[in-house]
Design a protein around this nucleic acid. Structure first.
Length: 232
DNA sequence: CACCAGGCAAGTA
DNA sequence: TACTTGCATGGT
């Protein structure tokens, strides 16, 4: 075994089960064209606000921003830090998140002059590296922005994904596994090309939906649609 | 009252 | 590299 990650075939032969999960969830919940936001800009702000926070609280914060006409690059750029903090308060960690949002907006001005079109034209790998260098943007937030705002073929791994892989015995130790390894698992089995952007979008959306209903930290797995996976 | 939520950065060993 | 801790509101 050249690599620890090859042990026990941990990462091999998972294609069928990954497609099965997608199939079951799609059948259960139906197609979703996702990220609950009205604009790509709102997606990016939401991606930061939802860090370790319930979406309900994020909605309150987004609504505050909307009411004050702050859902644009220019408006967030202009507003002073303390006012921003007050508006996003319901989303929690507001002192940090306000700085994170400011840092992200400064980046978009510095590198792309607030042009979403230019951001979408950027190479995926380059953009991911750039995003990860911004204070407050980690792997999940970067990938959410890449996939749902910039429409890039990148698979998003989150707490729900880890729990589902762990609880249904698909990957041992998924809760503690490195983000990179879990992401590679999906992207090796579902080719990251233009045609699969829709699948990436939908798959993660379905995982979040299933996670909220059946795979919370305190398990509530009574009629989880993924139960039938155990026969594979 | 305790626990949880679509993470992340900084500190420690 | 692998753990630990602080951050904070609002719902159950």
């Amino acid at each position: 075994m050249a690599d620890k990650n090859d042990d026990f075939g941990k990462w091999e032969g998972k294609s069928d089960i990954l497609l099965k999960i997608y199939s079951i969830l799609l059948d259960k919940f139906g197609p979703m064209n996702w990220w609950p936001a009205k604009s790509d800009f709102e997606v990016m702000i939401g991606a930061i606000l939802t860090q370790n926070t319930s979406w309900k609280n994020v909605e309150k914060a987004i609504n505050n921003l909307n009411v004050h006409n702050l859902l644009s690059f220019e408006a967030i750029y202009e507003i002073d830090l303390n006012s921003l903090k007050q508006h996003i308060k319901p989303s929690g960690y507001y002192n940090q998140k306000a700085i994170k949002i400011k840092e992200f907006i400064n980046f978009t001005k510095r590198e792309y002059n607030f042009s979403l079109e230019l951001m979408k034209k950027e190479d995926v790998f380059i953009m991911r590296e750039k995003l990860l260098r911004i204070f407050g943007i980690g792997e999940e937030t970067a990938d959410s922005i890449l996939l749902y705002a910039l429409k890039k073929p990148v698979f998003v791994i989150d707490a729900y994904t880890r729990r589902i892989l762990e609880r249904h015995n698909i990957i041992k130790g998924a809760l503690k596994e490195k983000y990179e390894n879990l992401q590679r698992l999906f992207m090796k089995n579902i080719t990251p090309d233009e045609a699969n952007i829709k699948v990436y979008n939908q798959y993660h959306a379905l995982i979040v939906m299933a996670g909220k209903m059946f795979c919370k930290r305190t398990p509530l797995c009574d009629n989880c649609p993924l139960k039938e996976l155990e026969e594979m």
